[in-house]
């Protein structure tokens, strides 16, 4: 039998049973929050979701009664994936560097800086994008406010937490394997590449997923730099609108069916995130089974 936290047997007095109940309650509460949100969103968008209201078309023109969400769905996915593509490679490099190559105090300082950047409000990032990045891009490819601008700002926003979480996963892997690998005479870079990154991968995947979720859900920053035109992007420099930006832009001024359609945007996003998470978990599980378990 493999040793794992769960099947280490402890003496089990009353305190443990109380502890177990408390813990089960917390886990139940998390599940309940999720269920409540799903219920709320579904109820709020039900009147459009379960009839053929044309949500699956391109045209979004609330004043004309057209509530197509497809273009914004594409926008959301495109922006988030591009942001991940931009942020993940440097994120990993930074985590590895901070843990294994930088002098300890520099690494610590670097992680501190990342924690700090993570708490800059998205408005500030968005504002910077609006006054610095968009005019810059505009010189190269008008109107500047675009898929690319949004992805860049998003990448900048998700990078800090990505670095911190990758760092945590690498640190654990390091504790387990670095000494052994170094004793065998391997170089640090070789060890990182061949031992530590593969070991940390199962934890890196959820960390990246969490950031994908965050990118999909980011509102204020994207709203300021994406251009918000409802269309399928024909270029990386074309303006697009995401589902979240759509909610934030129009919710305050919507009523009736228009409002319901905005709730449906939220519902769609929710389903999208669920699907992505399910798929990615399946991939991660297969990858986890494929590699030799080092525990």
């Amino acid at each position: 039998m493999i040793l794992s936290p769960v099947n280490t047997s402890f003496r089990s007095p009353a305190a443990d049973r109380a502890l177990f109940r408390a813990l089960a309650f917390s886990a139940g509460a998390v599940a309940a929050i999720l269920a409540l949100i799903l219920l709320y969103l579904t109820l709020a968008s039900a009147s459009l979701l379960f009839v053929d209201a044309g949500l699956w078309q391109l045209r979004w023109q609330p004043s004309a009664g057209a509530y197509g969400l497809v273009a914004m769905l594409v926008g959301s996915v495109a922006v988030s994936l591009l942001a991940l593509l931009i942020a993940v490679p440097p994120g990993l490099v930074l985590a590895v560097w901070g843990r294994f190559f930088a002098p300890p105090w520099v690494g610590g300082l670097y992680r501190g800086a990342m924690g700090l950047l993570a708490s800059i409000p998205s408005v500030v990032y968005g504002f910077w994008g609006l006054v610095v990045l968009v005019p810059l891009l505009n010189r190269w490819a008008p109107p500047g406010a675009s898929l690319l601008a949004a992805a860049l700002v998003l990448a900048l926003m998700i990078l800090p937490i990505l670095v911190l979480q990758a760092d945590l996963a690498l640190d654990e892997a390091r504790r387990r394997h670095l000494a052994a690998a170094m004793a065998l005479g391997a170089s640090v870079s070789g060890t990182v590449r061949r031992v530590l990154l593969p070991t940390a991968a199962p934890q890196l995947v959820p960390a990246v997923l969490l950031q994908l979720g965050r990118a999909l859900g980011e509102t204020m920053a994207v709203l300021m730099v994406a251009g918000n035109v409802v269309q399928l992007p024909d270029a990386i420099t074309a303006p697009i609108r995401t589902l979240t930006a759509n909610i934030a832009l129009e919710m305050a001024y919507a009523s009736g069916e228009h409002q319901t359609a905005l709730f449906a945007s939220g519902w769609l996003l929710f389903v999208l995130v669920t699907l992505i998470m399910l798929g990615a978990r399946a991939v991660a599980r297969r990858a986890g089974e494929g590699r030799v378990d080092a525990h």
Binding site: Q61, S63, A64, P142, P143, A145, G227, N228, V229, P239
Partner: peptide, 9 residues
């Protein structure tokens, strides 16, 4: 609204 061709909203 449908007639408008905007670059940035």
């Amino acid at each position: 609204t449908p007639a408008i061709r905007a670059d940035v909203v």
